[in-house]
Design a protein around this nucleic acid. Structure first.
Lengths: 207, 207
DNA sequence: GCGGGGGTCATCCGATCGGTCGATGCGGGG
DNA sequence: CCCCGCATCGACCGATCGGATGACCCCCGC
């Protein structure tokens, strides 16, 4: 059984999804939200497995922001974006906000069901047009760290302080800090914990 | 008589060990290696009983990889890791690579001698701090964090500072720090970067 | 020969972290 | 009923981090 929260500002769309999902025995819709704010509140309260999120929400925060807030909740549900458009900006912003999947409304119902179950299990599902764009983006966007920066990152992941990193690599603390600053820039973070987190997820480190 | 191969990228450390081991009548140092690659080659050529291996080797492969290759040799020598740090990651990787023992450089010389003879006989010797961690690992298989601690860890992996973690979870900074301290204990680290690293490797976090 | 990227180093300072006490409240198991 | 694990909070302090700046060197490509 997978529990769902719907979020779409269009009543007819919600009704349509409700009818569609009602035909699936192992999917239960816990609630509906007509705005991003409502979605965040209901996600925290109802604790569904998956949130089906539209990106265009009219008034208030948009779907990306709602996604960001929902995934920032403790033990957050997975957010499956279900929208009409597939522009690069939307896709990257949604993924960046923590969306687990990105489906187009033109998708066949069976695909939607499959994607919901995948999302509940934490697996990512992307509609074909979306997938190709993401792949293209990955190649260009993946941060390229220099060898030395990877050395620093490796020591950082061991939890060492700057002094110990410096000793391990036979350089000064000042140099370590300089490298760290650049690593933060490239990874889009501003703390060592964040850097390690991104590095592990991007598999930038051996082992 | 036990024959030894030293591997450490620091010349002074090798010299120190050489002098130290020279005072032991039934220990003979067959050779020294300044890099992992050299250690593997010399181990194959000199066939010592025991290889004393540092984990931090600067350039080239690290001590873990060198250990892995040496223990993969036909009729391999025993590898006794002798290093400065005792992080969980280092210990488990070294043991996983086939190390027979794991000593800290802060150890007393008599302990080193005893460990060398033990290693030659195939027995395992661990420094006290290392042993306690290994035991902890054996018992728990993996550290069991409370739900709340996982919440903290999740926010930590986003790179947030204590103040922001507190706000995200609606608690005070003091509470965040308390939880973090316990998380450090359980994961065997003492920094947030180390905690994130271990958490990611142990797959403690949803993702 | 000149620019630029990569690596190195230094100094300064406020903000933050990690450690260590102690303390409260609440729930369950003995 | 009492103890213990869990979660919560407060205060203190030294150590460390992050950010900003400016600088030097080496190598490579143009």
């Amino acid at each position: 059984m997978t529990t769902i929260l719907l979020c779409d500002d269009h009543v007819v769309v919600r009704a349509g999804l409700l009818a569609l999902l009602g035909s699936e025995p192992d999917i239960e819709v816990l609630g509906e939200a007509g705005s991003g704010e409502e979605a965040v509140a209901l996600a925290a309260k109802l604790r569904p497995d998956v949130v089906l999120m539209d990106l265009q929400l009219g008034e208030g925060i948009d779907g990306v922001e709602a996604t960001r807030r929902i995934t920032a909740l403790p033990q957050p549900p997975h957010v499956l974006v279900l929208t009409t458009y597939d522009t690069d900006a939307d896709i990257t912003r949604a993924i960046g906000a923590g969306a687990t999947g990105y489906l187009l409304k033109a998708e066949r119902p069976e695909e939607l069901f499959a994607a919901i179950h995948s999302a509940a299990a934490g697996r990512t599902t992307l509609s074909a047009p979306v997938a190709s764009r993401v792949m293209a983006h990955m190649r260009g966007t993946r941060p390229t760290l220099t060898d030395r920066e990877l050395d620093i990152l490796g020591q950082l992941a061991r939890g060492l302080g700057n002094r110990d990193i410096a000793r391990a690599l036979f350089i000064s603390e000042a140099t370590v800090k300089t490298h760290l600053g650049r690593i933060y820039d490239k990874l889009g973070v501003d703390t060592r914990a964040g850097a390690v987190s991104v590095a592990k997820e991007q598999r930038l480190l051996p082992s």
